[in-house]
């Protein structure tokens, strides 16, 4: 039993009881105190589980309510929140899903997509460049500037390698109703591809791109030059396809509004 002498010690002790049903009550506490503590414990769990369900709405629907609740409870025990914002309670939950749903790896992939969309929703505002902007900039480019070109992507842009058609899952789980058994899409184990998430105006969106495009995008997001990206594509796709694809990718990223700035 910890002797609770100072306010700080009492708060550590109280928090330990909130987080753990088995934690012993302090000396001098009565059944009435225990009843009060039960309310705080229940409120803590209910609020956090509700927050996770709100963020991971589709994942909960796909995994099923009982399985999702168990995963949420597991997550709260292993990663009790420490951020000031309830929004962060879902941080790391896709990893928890990966650990728990080892036989259904699409659950963690879907969870990652929901988390990335959640983060993009409140990412910093920025105006995406359009093709005309690149056109004006390109008019000032010397030959070597193309190779040195670097891209800054919109805040909130994120990506991940997936091995299932998560886009199909996302669409199938869009309704408010529970998904009937006959409406559950077959989980297709697809060729590796990348989910890319960003925000269009105020709306988070995503697209699925090929593994090659995903890796190229990852390079550019990590600060590589366009020249280095093209070299990678030549190595993985061959020169002819790389020339066509590098331009197409840049055009696609511009067209979709992923690029915030171009520097040379």
């Amino acid at each position: 039993m910890i002797a609770a002498n100072s306010l700080g010690e009492r708060q550590q002790e109280f928090m330990a009881q909130v987080l753990d049903d088995e934690h012993p009550l302090p000396a001098g506490w009565t059944d009435r105190h225990a009843a009060g503590m039960d309310i705080y414990r229940n409120a803590y769990r209910a609020r956090l589980v509700d927050a996770l369900r709100d963020t991971y709405e589709r994942t909960a629907k796909w995994a099923g309510e009982d399985a999702f609740r168990q995963a949420a409870a597991h997550h709260l025990i292993n990663r009790p929140p420490n951020s000031w914002t309830l929004d962060d309670a879902g941080d790391g939950f896709p990893e928890t899903l990966r650990e728990l749903f080892t036989g259904d790896p699409e659950v963690a992939e879907l969870g990652w997509l929901e988390w990335a969309m959640h983060r993009a929703f409140v990412a910093a505002d920025a105006v995406p460049m359009v093709a005309e902007d690149l056109g004006k900039l390109a008019a000032t480019f010397a030959e070597e500037d193309w190779g040195n070109m670097q891209l800054t992507f919109l805040p909130g842009t994120d990506q991940r390698l997936v091995r299932h058609d998560v886009g199909a899952l996302w669409r199938a789980l869009a309704g408010e109703e529970e998904l009937a058994a006959e409406d559950r899409p077959e989980v297709i184990s697809a060729q590796p591809m990348h989910l890319v998430v960003w925000r269009e105006g105020v709306k988070p969106v995503f697209m699925q791109v090929s593994d090659a495009e995903g890796r190229a995008l990852q390079m550019m997001r990590n600060g590589s030059t366009y020249g280095a990206m093209c070299a990678y594509l030549v190595e993985s796709l061959g020169e002819e396809e790389a020339i066509a694809e590098s331009g197409a990718m840049l055009g696609r990223w511009l067209h979709n509004g992923l690029i915030a700035a171009i520097t040379k």
């Binding site: 100072s6 306010l7 700080g8 009492r10 708060q11 550590q12 109280f14 928090m15 909130v18 987080l19 705080y40 409120a43 803590y44 609020r47 956090l48 927050a51 009790p80 929140p81 420490n82 951020s83 000031w84 309830l86 309670a89």
Partner: peptide, 22 residues
């Protein structure tokens, strides 16, 4: 109220003892 210690945040409005120290 208080909601957090240095390590954890309950995201709940937890009660304070009404003491001179508090």
């Amino acid at each position: 109220c208080w909601t957090r210690t240095s390590a954890h945040n309950s995201h709940d409005l937890l009660p304070l003892p009404y003491t001179r120290e508090a």
